[in-house]
């Protein structure tokens, strides 16, 4: 029973981490139609920024503020300035994806060149813990879950109940039509890059502090699973990314407990493929489901 509870609780924790990043990733893709493969490296850069700017602070609220700010700025720079320049020159979707890969590698190896190959670590702090039916959850993990829930709710409110959310959905659905309705696609995309980057930064610092140590490749490794959650849920669909993250989180924990730990990643990918065979568009697909890469 404790094991089952552990699967659920730590599955939710894993999902929470994934969901924060996956929602940012899929939101940005849905609105800008740019497959940003530099997302993982931005995530890493945010951990480095937080680590450096706060003096290795493990205060999650300060860390999230710094992470969100640095992620937003980086994302805007990369997405709106660099990628935007290529878009204005008529680059193809594949070309843009390659540009983001190049940016990703530049960021990753740039960090490695500056920092060296060693990992960086936070100082061990004694976190408060709570016991739920024999399962011990740390305050940091609980905070991550709460932050994820709040972030998901905020994104849903933004998309469904605000004028800007309507502009985002309109831009995602039909840029030309959005323009005729007095929506500025450029401004909408810029703000979307900011929001996406902020979520990326929050995800990064929660990941870095949660793991206790990190390196220049931490975000890139995590990005693969994060992108899988987005694809599973339906690319471009924030609610889908949440569901995708939850499935991957719980399936991987269950596989670790029931089969063997080394099968946890495999199990998550098997589920991903199985779902996509049945629903190629992902579990949920809405406003950006039928889009090609870069109009």
């Amino acid at each position: 029973m404790t094991l089952l509870l552990g699967i659920v609780i730590f599955g939710v924790y894993s999902a929470a981490l994934l969901a924060i990043g996956a929602v940012g990733f899929t939101l940005q893709f849905g609105v800008t139609n740019v497959l940003n493969l530099a997302f993982g490296s931005i995530l890493t850069a945010c951990i480095f920024a937080e680590y450096g700017l706060t003096g290795h602070s493990t205060n999650l609220w300060i860390a999230m503020a710094v992470g969100a700010a640095s992620g937003a700025v980086l994302s805007l720079l990369i997405g709106h300035v660099v990628v935007g320049a290529f878009l204005r020159r008529g680059a193809t979707g594949f070309g843009i994806a390659m540009v983001t890969i190049a940016i990703s590698l530049m960021v990753q190896f740039g960090l490695e060149a500056i920092q060296g190959p060693d990992i960086l670590s936070y100082s061990a702090g004694s976190q408060a813990t709570m016991n739920i039916g024999g399962v011990v959850l740390s305050s940091g993990q609980l905070t991550t879950i709460i932050v994820a829930v709040l972030a998901m709710a905020a994104v849903q409110v933004l998309l469904r109940m605000t004028k800007f959310g309507l502009a985002m959905r309109a831009t995602a659905a039909d840029v030309s039509l959005a323009r005729t309705c007095a929506v500025s696609p450029a401004r909408t995309r810029a703000v979307t890059w900011l929001i996406s980057g902020a979520l990326c930064g929050i995800c990064g610092v929660l990941l870095g502090i949660g793991e206790g140590s990190f390196s220049a490749s931490t975000g890139s490794d995590f990005f693969i699973t994060l992108a899988a959650a987005a694809v599973l849920g339906g690319i471009g669909k924030p609610a889908g990314a949440m569901i995708g993250a939850l499935i991957i989180g719980i399936v991987s924990q269950a596989a670790a407990a029931v089969i063997a730990p080394s099968y946890k990643t495999i199990a998550a990918w098997v589920i991903l493929i199985a779902v996509l065979v049945l629903r190629p568009q992902g579990i949920l697909a809405e406003f950006a489901a039928d889009r090609e890469l870069v109009a």
Partner: peptide, 10 residues
């Protein structure tokens, strides 16, 4: 992995 909590429980 981001957590080994389930493994630790086992």
């Amino acid at each position: 992995q981001t957590t080994y909590a389930t493994e630790v429980q086992k």
